[in-house]
């Protein structure tokens, strides 16, 4: 099977790898690069657990091919905290108990980060529709929505 040579920037680091044509960004991250922070819930773009930031846009990593990473900038959950300092969204998710099992959390954090970059002062409804592609089965979304709104408020102040 043919393997393609790909150079991408992941969380600020230039990374070189090879992948097969049919491998997705999710396959590359998890299997080739062993970055398992990006989670696989369905492989069909329906659950949002694998949401990563691809050239500034939130995408389902299971729906983008690995070869498309060539020359792209990919941000994953592993790069969200800066050293020992959590991103405000990460901290607010902990403060608000916005996770129970935590499997959907990396994807939701990435989606919320892009949401707030595009809309720093969202309404509750805008947060709900912004996260509508990310399934969470534990929380009923209440505390997630509150955490995102609280993080948005804090990020606006700073």
């Amino acid at each position: 099977m043919t393997r393609h040579f790909v150079t991408a920037n992941i969380n600020g680091d230039d990374v070189e790898f090879t992948c097969r044509t049919e491998q997705t960004v999710l396959d590359v991250l998890r299997s080739e690069l062993r970055m398992t922070g990006t989670k696989n819930g369905c492989s069909t773009g329906d659950c949002g657990a694998c949401t990563v930031i691809f050239n500034g846009r939130a995408v389902n990593a299971c729906l983008v091919l690995g070869v498309e990473m060539n020359g792209a900038r990919i941000d994953t959950i592993e790069g969200m905290a800066k050293g020992e300092k959590l991103h405000p969204l990460q901290q607010k998710f902990l403060d608000h108990a916005a996770l129970q099992c935590g499997i959907c959390t990396p994807g939701i954090l990435n989606m919320a980060k892009v949401l707030l970059e595009n809309n720093p002062d969202p309404t509750e409804s805008e947060v709900r529709f912004g996260l509508a592609g990310n399934l969470c089965r534990c929380t009923g979304y209440d505390k997630i929505v509150r955490a995102v709104l609280d993080a948005a408020a804090e990020m606006r102040e700073n």
């Binding site: 970055m35 398992t36 922070g37 994953t76 959950i77 592993e78 969200m80 108990a97 996770l99 935590g102």
Partner: peptide, 19 residues
Amino acid sequence: RPDGVDKVTGRARYGDDLL
């Protein structure tokens, strides 16, 4: 929660995360 930071940073290892 003791496991909180690991779960917001992608560090927590679930069923398919052991290689």
